[in-house]
Structure formats: C-alpha cells, structure tokens
Design a binder for these strands. Structure first.
Lengths: 197, 197
DNA sequence: TTAAATTAGTGATAATTGTCCTTTATTACC
DNA sequence: GGTAATAAAGGACAATTATCACTAATTTAA
C-alpha cells in the first residue's frame, strides 16, 4: 500500500535524513514510518520529567526542544537543543529503560515523530539498513560530543560562544541568551558581557 | 576450524565484552577475531599523528593509551584515556576516512587488537549481531560523553576531580596528574592545589 | 651511575568568571 | 490594554582559576 502524500509530503525530511545514509524504496519508507507516532506539543510543555520512565526517542519535524538537568540547588544545565531534523530524548533512560535524569521540554510549539525502544529494535532487526542508519547517526553524534568536550576543556567562554554562533547561526534568534549561557557552561551575566565585545 | 587456545586464552576479554551484549558460538568468535590484527606499541609511541589518515580502531588488550588535541599555541588537551577493554581512535578521521585532528599515543607498553573500517563494515554486514553490538557500544559511549559534558558545564574543578577518582579509582596511579588536569580542563597547578584539600 | 627529563608542589599576581543587585526592555497572557 | 512574567544589560565585589616563577623529588635513559 503506497500513500504518496506521506512519501512526498510532510515527513520528507526524515526520509531525506535516512537516505543520506541508506536508500529506501517507497514501500520500505512507508513501513519505517508506520513505526513512528506523530505528536504535537505546546511551548513550555514538559515532554519528559526527571524521574519519569522514557517511552520515546523524538525526531523533531517542526519546533524547538531542549534537554537539561537541574541540580539539587535548582540550577538548570542545558545538554542539548533540537531543531527541525534533530533527535532528542534522555538517551540513558530511553535505552536502558530506567528513570530519566534529564528533563525534556519545548521552547516552541513542536511537531515530532516518536519512536519507542521496541519499535526501534524492530526496525533494526527487520531491516538491517535501518540498523546501519542508526549506527552511523549515533557515531556522528558521538563525534559531535567529543568536539563539544574539546571545546569545553580547551576554549575560553568567548571562544565557545562564537564557535556556537558559527556552527548554528539560526539558534541565537530562537533561544534566550540565558539558555545559550547554560549550554555553554557560563553564567548569563558573563555571556551578556562577552556578547558585547 | 576451532583454535581453542585463542577462544579461552588471551582475547577472552574482547569475547566477554561482546557477549555482554550478544552471544557468539566459538566459530563465530573465531571468525570475528580473524578480522582483527594484533599489534604491540611501546610507551611514548605515537600511534596516530594529527594529519595522518587513520586506518584502525584500537581495542586495548593491555596497556594504556590516550587521545588528545594540541592547539596552535602548543597546549595539549586530553580527550580520552583507554585502559584494558576500552576502544580508542580518532573516530571522526576513522569513520569518515579523513585526516586526523587528534593524536593517539601510548602512556604504557600496550597490546591492541586493530580493526580497519573495511573489516568493521564487513563484520556488521555479514553478522548482524556484530552491528547490534557496535550500535549498543556506540550508544553507551554517547551517553558517557553526555555525562562528561554535564559534569564540565555544571561542576567545579574540585567536583570534576573527585568525580573522576570515583569513576576510575585505578587511573590516578597510572596517569600523571598533569594529564588528569588536561582531561578535566584545568591547569596542572590548579589541580595540584585542589588535590591537597 | 650519573645527567637529563619529567613530575609535583607552592607562592605571588593577574585574569576570568560568578554572584548579587538594580534597571530597563520586551514578551506573554487575562 | 494593562499587568505580570521573562529577558537582557551592567555595576560592584567576591571567588575561582590561570600564569609565571621557582624548588624539590622522582623517573628515565645514555
């Protein structure tokens, strides 16, 4: 059964992301897509609370979502921002089916495609190309995190800020500077002073 | 063809690591192992130089290896230490077959099992369990790096140091404190003062 | 075995960053 | 449309960390 409006329509970006790594027939993509659930969230809506069990990994179709950890004295530290075409969840809680240590919430009204762990494993088992795709994506993510670590241990706050602006020029218009500061590991006051240099 | 001395002998840890995730018959493990090359390196030996093409991912059988980046003014920043039963390489250069931006060298005489990218992809293609294994390992690595990032953006130097000692109590006996400092993103003088508290 | 290199600790000082505070501007929402 | 909430900037000061310099102990290697 082919549903061309889906293939050529609104989930084109997910298909493109997958096809940058492996090629899929229309039927294969339809089958892949059938393992996802479409969900809509409002700005400020909390998708995952620290302590929750985590049912899904989220592919962002539209909107902006962040993951963060809040320490005992109430300070929030941003782990990740996810714009369109990114994935986000609490990966530890999701993959090990344990309680979340991160919270995930929306900075804008968002549309996502949700994938349960069971469905992810089913995709991998039954279509090896999908396992290859996830391996490549996860490896790319690992490399990106190593770069962020190098930046954190080797660069000044100013360098880290301009590095972020370079990498994601669109981000600064959509995210409050206090959250960029949190992502960079500096106080919002310090970032405010850096940004005026 | 079964070679029991290998199965029960010196590469037992690699088999155990794989079998924590998927189970293998003796023949399967022999076949997997045949894709690796045994190599020996001396202390201070450079395995990968920045600028090199990277042929291998290295599984450490014995010894201690580090990866690091040296910035233009000559300061070295440690990305990773790899003890026995860990993997190490420049992952970006290895997976994309581009020039290394990290250098990899030995802190102790080391024995490794080297895996080329072609052989890794062959393992994944021909024995899906191995692709599942690499996906699980890479996912676990991703989660570990997210934790290190959270530590870097949310903890003081003192907290990061004691956190490292907690996680890897054996490390401090084998690694100069100047390198632990580099890994933690503080100067060796600062670490020296923290450690005496 | 001895000289050279590496490692570690510490003082003095400068630079960076955090914290607390107030003010102003902007945005969200009844 | 008006009030509340959020966001941003910056002053004043404290805390943290880096840098440079020097010494001592330990390890390495010819």
């Amino acid at each position: 059964m082919v549903r061309p409006y889906l293939v050529t329509g609104m989930n084109i970006t997910l298909r493109q992301q997958i096809e940058r790594i492996v090629s899929l027939s229309n039927d294969e993509f339809e089958w892949v897509l059938s393992h996802f659930t479409e969900q809509y969230f409002k700005k400020h809506q909390i998708i995952i609370n620290e302590g929750d069990y985590v049912q899904n990994d989220f592919y962002v179709v539209k909107g902006l979502i962040k993951s963060s950890h809040t320490n005992p004295d109430g300070k929030e530290h941003v782990i990740q921002f996810a714009l369109e075409d990114w994935w986000i969840t609490d990966p530890q809680a999701f993959h090990n089916q344990t309680k979340a240590t991160l919270s995930v919430n929306c900075l804008e009204d968002s549309k996502v495609l949700s994938l349960t762990l069971d469905n992810k494993e089913k995709l991998c088992r039954e279509l090896q190309k999908m396992e290859y795709f996830f391996l490549k994506k996860t490896t790319a993510g690992y490399i990106a995190l190593q770069k962020r670590i190098l930046c954190l241990i080797s660069s000044t706050a100013t360098e880290r800020y301009y590095n972020l602006l370079d990498q994601y020029p669109g981000l600064i218009q959509r995210i409050p500077k206090s959250m960029l500061a949190s992502y960079l590991g500096v106080s919002r006051e310090t970032l405010s002073r850096l940004a005026t240099i």
